[in-house]
Amino acid sequence: MNALSMAWAAVVAHPLFLIGLTLGVYQLGQALYERTRMALLHPLIVAIALLIPALWLLGLEYPVYRDAVFPLTMLLAPATVALGVPLYHNLRRIRQYFWPVMISLMVGGLFVTILTLLLAWLLGADFTMLMTLAPKSLTTPIAMAVAEQVGGIAALAAGFVMYTAVLGALMGPWLLTVTGVTEPSARGMSLGLAAHAVGTSRALEEGDETGAFAALAMSLMGIATALLLPVAVAVWFMF
């Protein structure tokens, strides 16, 4: 191995290289998205599409990448908490819609979870896969914890969460527009319930009120599912 190859190997092995690579491809996606406003060029989608082949070409396994970018992962929780800012700014509006919010949460949350389980069961999924799919509309940390608690696979649940987020960010606003849903609060609730944090990020692009209701829906959906899904599974096994 010559000096150039050794130097390159040392650069790739440094944790800051993968952090820089991650931030770089995301910023590229952000620039493309701001210029085109195409849903397919959402920064998250671009980052995934570029990172996977980059890691393959570099010969790096996912555990190596995961450990290297752990500092970025740690920022996920503070970033999620920061979504409380638009909630605070729209508290008066949220109080006006207290009962519609609660009803939307119950109906929408139950529909999302039950329809997912029903379709997976009809397609032949076993119990482990069903419990892995059940929390797919929650944020990643909550979904992984809930999936593990009810007998699912935490790592696979994280993958389903990401798929749901990307699909929701791509299709959600278009479906809401096609079906005539124009009220910011309704659009926000829909995106937050179905596509959690990425849906909330997409909702914030439409306005502060839309983002606030999306953050509210995402938070309430996470709390309700984390509390009720394990109870529902336990009751199911009792009968």
Rank of each mutant, 00 (worst) to 15 (best):
L76M: 15
G59C: 05
L32M: 09
L83T: 07
A3S: 03
G159C: 02
A195V: 12
V85E: 11
Y33D: 01
P15W: 10
R93K: 11
T113S: 10
L204E: 15
M129D: 04
V166W: 04
W174V: 10
L58K: 04
L193G: 01
L117T: 11
R66V: 12
L75W: 10
S137A: 11
M74D: 10
P86R: 14
L105S: 04
T116P: 08
V166Y: 03
L118Y: 12
G20T: 09
H42Q: 14
F127T: 15
P230K: 08
L51N: 02
T179I: 09
A226F: 06
F70T: 15
A215P: 01
F239W: 07
I142F: 06
L105E: 02
Y26G: 01
Y88V: 12
L75D: 13
L28D: 08
Q96R: 13
N90P: 12
W8C: 14
W121R: 13
F213A: 00
L18F: 10
V25W: 09
V107T: 03
T200E: 00
V198W: 00
G188E: 06
V112T: 15
S219Q: 09
L204C: 15
L23A: 15
I114L: 15
L115P: 00
M129A: 08
F98I: 04
T132H: 02
L191H: 00
L4C: 08
Y65G: 05
A165Y: 01
I45R: 03
G59Y: 09
V233D: 07
M218E: 07
A165L: 04
A3F: 03
A154E: 04
P15L: 10
M131K: 14
F237R: 12
G124L: 13
A165Q: 03
V150D: 11
R93V: 02
A10Y: 05
L170R: 00
M129K: 04
Q149F: 10
R93H: 14
N2P: 09
K136M: 13
R187V: 02
L228V: 12
M131E: 03
V233I: 09
S219L: 05
A47V: 05
L28Q: 14
R202M: 06
L167R: 08
L76C: 11
L138P: 07
S5P: 02
V198G: 00
L167S: 11
A215K: 00
S185G: 12
V231R: 07
I52R: 02
Q96T: 07
V146F: 07
G24N: 07
A158T: 13
V233R: 06
A10K: 10
L32A: 13
G207T: 04
H89Q: 15
L229D: 02
V101C: 05
L130W: 08
L118T: 14
A134P: 01
V233G: 09
L167H: 05
L23C: 12
V150S: 13
M238E: 14
Y97Q: 15
A165C: 08
G84P: 01
L105A: 03
L51R: 00
S190P: 00
A7L: 15
A224I: 14
L58F: 09
I223N: 08
V107H: 01
A155P: 07
P43Q: 03
W99E: 10
A7M: 11
A68R: 06
W174H: 02
M106F: 13
V231A: 06
A9C: 07
A49L: 12
